[in-house]
Amino acid sequence: MPETVEGILFYSPSTIESYLLKNKPNQVAYCIGETTAKEARKHFKEVKVANIPDMESVIDLVNESYK
């Protein structure tokens, strides 16, 4: 992943595991729910969790970060 990427959206713990096989956890992890966030907190310094566990809420969470 290029260094210019500031955040990654994760929808399951397994996607975090796959991401980390070839990438460093230098970005913000935007997570769909608490189970995914629990795994992300093991690796990422900054983890944000959507209020409602659906894709639209994760996108809203990202948008809030850039207002």
Rank of each mutant, 00 (worst) to 15 (best):
M1H: 03
M1S: 06
M1Q: 03
P2A: 02
E3H: 01
T4N: 07
T4I: 04
V5A: 05
V5L: 10
V5N: 01
V5M: 04
E6M: 11
G7S: 13
G7L: 05
I8K: 04
F10E: 12
F10V: 04
Y11F: 11
S12K: 06
S12A: 13
S12L: 02
S12I: 06
S12G: 10
P13K: 08
P13H: 01
P13E: 10
P13A: 11
P13G: 05
P13D: 08
S14N: 13
S14W: 00
T15E: 15
T15I: 03
T15M: 01
I16N: 05
E17I: 14
E17K: 11
E17C: 00
S18H: 10
S18R: 08
Y19E: 08
Y19W: 09
Y19Q: 05
Y19C: 02
L20G: 07
K22N: 07
K22D: 10
N23L: 08
N23M: 11
K24N: 13
P25F: 03
P25W: 05
V28T: 14
V28K: 10
V28M: 08
A29D: 14
A29K: 06
A29E: 14
A29H: 08
Y30L: 15
C31W: 07
C31G: 10
I32F: 02
I32Y: 03
I32G: 09
G33M: 08
G33N: 15
G33D: 15
G33Q: 09
G33R: 07
E34I: 12
T36N: 05
T36D: 07
T36E: 13
A37P: 15
A37E: 03
K38E: 14
E39H: 01
E39D: 00
A40T: 15
A40W: 02
R41W: 00
R41M: 10
R41N: 11
R41H: 05
H43G: 09
H43T: 13
K45A: 14
K45R: 13
K45H: 06
E46Y: 01
E46D: 15
E46Q: 15
V47H: 05
V47P: 15
V47R: 08
K48E: 15
V49E: 12
V49F: 01
V49S: 03
V49D: 07
A50S: 15
A50T: 12
N51F: 01
N51A: 13
N51S: 14
I52G: 01
P53W: 02
D54H: 04
D54F: 02
D54V: 01
D54M: 06
D54I: 03
D54Q: 08
M55G: 06
M55L: 10
E56C: 02
S57G: 04
S57R: 06
S57I: 03
S57P: 00
V58N: 05
I59H: 09
I59S: 09
I59D: 12
D60E: 12
D60Y: 02
L61Y: 00
L61H: 03
V62D: 10
V62G: 07
V62T: 06
V62M: 12
S65G: 14
S65C: 05
Y66V: 12
Y66Q: 09
